[in-house]
Design a protein around this nucleic acid. Structure first.
Length: 570
RNA sequence: AGCGAGGUAGCUCAAUUGGCAGAGCAGGUGCCUUUGGAGCACAAGGUUAAAGGUUCGAGUCCUUUCCUCGCUGCCA
């Protein structure tokens, strides 16, 4: 990981301001507060990096707190998965694992306090009526007829709510603020509602549950959080956050809002992710095409790459969409430095080297990682019959195709120069085999006479290669923004070719011991990771990301040379 | 004009708080070669949303206009 350089942005400016004014005695204490109603995704990663990162940067602490105030949506499975993903990303909260539900008793007392000072009341308007009384964006709301009940009556009714004497929807506790506020969050917001659902942690103890707004600020306060960092949608909630803390008169952290991460070619809302899972567009939350942390992990992404990516995208208040290729850039960057190279042929074409001894198997030395000498070397077996990539041969090559063709000499990586002498086809004219000759003097891949070839091909030896399955993943969506078209559902843009399974592909025998999670570069092709489905009997590799491919880029641009366009004069 | 937030290169962000608008990514051109990868070099990219004002000097301060986003859950 890169050095701990101190990143400056508008949030650190605010924190530095507090340090100067002495508001928090120079302390920095943040928190990451997920609701356990889904899996963490790349957007959360940004918030995680920010909260844990800032704490680390200022020598402070960051808590993990589950915002579990709505038992109707929350599950233990999600709590466990979130903890696992957080650890995998490399963050540690020591013993500072908290739940908003830890504070239900205290929150209840605070609510009673607000009732006692005449700032909260039990409302028995129906949900519909409350909506009507709320007014609209441009029209002020109306006060509830229950708004001015005496304190004693409110106390008694709230106790009845707690005791389960009301059914869901029959009563709520509301803060008495201002029904004509331009900020709708201040139009007597609901503090407590009745929910008849077992809570993953408190079980059946409670019939009433605090709303987010009534729980979050006070939870921050109880934990001694200094800077409560959240996303932009909560800007309008800050006055309410402040109101509760000021009226309950407890320690007051600072809420700060930043623009959450948006990524192209995917969706990040939990509502949509959960649909992808439930409607079986993907195999699960950890499907390698999902933007979840679990999905990215299974896709082969590394924590380092994800953290670098989050760092790179910066922190601001401007909403924007980060291109998916930026994520790919960072994983390539990391894997280039760390992944062992290996030879694998996805689409095999048989090659017989006619002048090579029939039964000889040579062990040729190959470099594991040219970027990292300490990765060492390995042996790759070579013999008379090998396989190369079908794409690496063309019978009638166009101008810029430098790979193998009839009569042409190329290098087999770490092995020999070979020259194609014959092309064998079946009755349909399909190429089934190549005949080549090799130059024994070029062993290891270098020509003593200094002659050069324009291409180096990867290969595997037929007798020793292992059969494996390769899962080639592509973008889950065909468009940059699957949510842009209001006429269509985002699932209409699912890429039908987002997964292609290849079997068998041929990989070099050094991969026999590869374990789930091991990452490799299949030379000249892509980075791959061993999938959890993999077994010694049948290796399974997921393609993380392809290498940048200038040949296919050039090919797409079309013909090429006659295209010296005149460039530039505005 | 309900309230709030925001507009700097194609994208994501900087600009020492009023002092010559810069990076990364993407795109372009070229070099290199035991990965057509990686790497290296170079060039290009801007009326800082617009207009006016203050100032020796404005991306930054003031005024106005335009545009974008969030908010009318007993979700978070």
């Amino acid at each position: 990981m890169s050095a701990n350089e101190t990143k400056k942005h508008f949030i650190t400016d605010i924190i530095d301001g507090h340090a100067e004014s002495g508001r928090f005695d120079g302390k920095v204490h943040t928190r990451f507060p997920p609701e356990p109603n889904g899996y963490l995704h790349i957007g959360h990663a940004k918030s995680i990096c920010l909260n844990f990162g800032i704490a680390e940067q200022y020598g402070g602490l960051c808590n993990l707190r589950f915002d579990d105030t709505n038992p109707a949506k929350e599950e233990q499975e999600y709590i466990d998965a979130i903890c696992e993903d957080l650890r995998w990303l490399g963050y540690d909260w020591d013993d500072r694992l908290y739940f908003a539900s830890d504070y239900f008793d205290q929150l209840y007392e605070m609510a009673i306090e607000l009732i006692q000072i005449g700032k909260a009341y039990v409302d028995e308007l129906s949900q519909d009526e409350i909506r009507q009384y709320r007014g609209t964006l441009t029209r002020p709301g109306l006060e509830s007829p229950y708004r001015n009940r005496p304190v004693e009556e409110n106390l008694a009714l709230f106790e009845k709510m707690r005791a389960g004497a009301f059914k869901e929807g029959e009563a709520v506790l509301r803060a008495k603020i201002d029904m004509s506020s331009g900020n709708i969050n201040l139009r007597d917001p609901v503090m407590y509602r009745i929910l008849d659902a077992p809570h993953p942690r408190t079980g059946a103890k409670w019939k009433i549950y605090p709303m987010y707004d009534f729980a979050h600020g006070q939870s921050d306060s109880i934990e001694g959080i200094t800077h409560s960092i959240c996303t932009l949608e909560y800007e309008d909630h800050r006055p309410l956050y402040d109101w509760y803390l000021d009226n309950i008169e407890i320690y007051h952290p600072q809420q700060i809002e930043f623009a959450r991460l948006e990524l192209s070619h995917t969706v990040l809302s939990k509502r949509k992710l959960i649909r992808l899972v439930q409607e079986k567009h993907v195999s699960g939350w950890d499907d390698p095409r999902m933007p979840t942390i679990a999905g990215l992990r299974r896709r082969g992404y590394s924590p380092e790459a994800i953290r670098q990516f989050c760092e790179d995208t910066g922190v601001g208040k401007v909403k924007g969409v980060v291109a998916f290729h930026k994520l790919e850039y960072h994983i390539r960057q990391h894997l280039n430095k760390t992944a062992d190279r290996v030879m694998a042929v996805l689409n095999p074409l048989k090659v017989v080297i006619e002048n090579y001894p029939d039964d000889l198997v040579e062990e040729l030395e190959a470099i594991n990682n040219p970027e990292d000498e300490s990765a060492g070397r390995r042996k790759a077996p070579f013999s008379k019959v090998i396989y190369i990539e079908r794409d690496d041969f063309m019978e009638d090559p166009p101008r810029k195709f430098f790979r193998l063709a009839p009569g042409r000499e190329v290098r087999l990586r770490y092995a020999y120069f070979i020259t194609c002498s014959d092309v064998i086809k079946d009755e349909d004219g399909e190429i089934v085999e190549l005949r080549c000759t090799y130059d024994p003097a070029t062993r290891g891949g270098a020509a003593p006479d200094g002659r050069r070839v324009k291409a180096t091909l990867h290969w595997v030896s037929a007798g020793q290669a292992l059969k494996a399955e390769a899962r080639l993943y592509d973008s889950l969506f065909t468009v940059e923004d699957p949510e842009a078209d209001s006429q269509k559902d985002f699932t209409d843009f699912i890429n039908p070719d987002s997964l292609r399974v290849l079997y068998p592909v041929l990989v070099e025998p050094s991969l026999r011991q590869a374990k789930s999670g091991d990452r490799f570069q299949f030379e000249r092709l892509a980075y791959f990771v061993v999938d959890p489905d993999s077994s010694p009997e049948k290796l399974v590799f997921n393609r993380t990301v392809a290498l940048r491919d200038q040949w296919s880029k050039a090919r797409k641009k079309g013909g090429g040379q006659a295209r010296k366009k005149q460039r530039g004069k505005r």
